[in-house]
């Protein structure tokens, strides 16, 4: 009954080959089936269909936001975005729950002096760009999510260039958590304000609207953008720092 030990690797590789063949066949079948189904998809008539037409025609008038994507995200379907930021909030708290360690990362070596100085000069400009993307979300491409990611990138670059302990000393995790929650609460607060001022949850606050095209136009959209921007930035930074944490037992 025993299989001779010499032939075992062969059998194993044969098994692996069989498995690979099986998977390839199955995946080819899926590809075929998908193609067959998707090729029957009629061409997209786009603007002739009801929903999109409405946004193109009255999006600007309704929301005052030049960027119609932002208008959809933070006004028409603002509840989705609230849900989204809640998802990030939940994901962050989950990751912190999974990875909670007592030890903080202590590594202060970082890269060379030249890189450090250069980054020192660059950082304000990166931050400025991030803030620009956030605050001009309703006027130009961009918005809270995109700007928030740029802000988080600063934090990540810090940990690479100056060593992972640097950022902790500047902004403690508590600060980041407060920033994140502050962003979420801004969103929620504007939503509740919508109930009291306009009678519907997350309704655009009309009295905040100024002349279209200026920075303070589009009602509550810029404020939501700012809240979401800080939230996403702080959240991603927290995720990053949770992941690079180490315990005493591991060498670093």
């Amino acid at each position: 009954m025993e299989i001779p030990t010499e032939t075992q690797p062969e059998v194993e590789s044969l098994n692996k080959l069989m498995k690979k063949t099986l998977i390839s066949v199955v995946l080819a079948g899926v590809a075929f089936a998908l193609y067959q189904n998707f090729s029957l998809m009629p061409g997209y008539e786009g603007l002739n269909v009801g929903l999109s037409n409405y946004i193109i025609e009255s999006g600007l008038k309704d929301t005052g936001s030049l960027n119609l994507i932002t208008a959809v995200l933070y006004d028409y379907r603002a509840f989705d975005s609230l849900g989204e930021s809640t998802v990030i909030f939940g994901a962050v708290s989950g990751i912190v729950l999974i990875l909670s360690r007592k030890m903080l990362p202590v590594s202060s070596k970082g890269l060379s002096f030249i890189v450090k100085r250069t980054l020192g000069i660059m950082t304000p400009f990166i931050a400025l760009f991030g803030l620009y993307v956030i605050t001009h979300g309703h006027l130009t491409p961009g918005g809270g999510f995109q700007g928030g990611v740029i802000l988080a990138a600063i934090s990540i670059i810090f940990s690479i260039v100056y060593g992972s302990a640097f950022d902790y000393r500047r902004y403690s995790p508590q600060t980041k958590t407060a920033l994140e929650t502050g962003g979420a609460l801004t969103f929620l607060g504007l939503g509740l304000a919508g109930i009291f001022m306009e009678g519907a949850f997350l309704h655009n606050l009309g009295f905040l609207t100024a002349e279209t095209g200026t920075l303070i136009s589009a009602g509550s959209i810029p404020y939501i953008n700012i809240g979401v921007g800080f939230k996403v930035g702080a959240g991603l930074a927290i995720i990053f720092y949770s992941m690079i944490q180490k315990t005493f037992e591991e060498d670093f």
Binding site: L51, Y54, D75, Y76, R77, N204
Partner: peptide
Amino acid sequence: QSTMGYSDSPFVI
């Protein structure tokens, strides 16, 4: 039923 935002627009949540 509870509508969010512009009740006259066709795609509101």
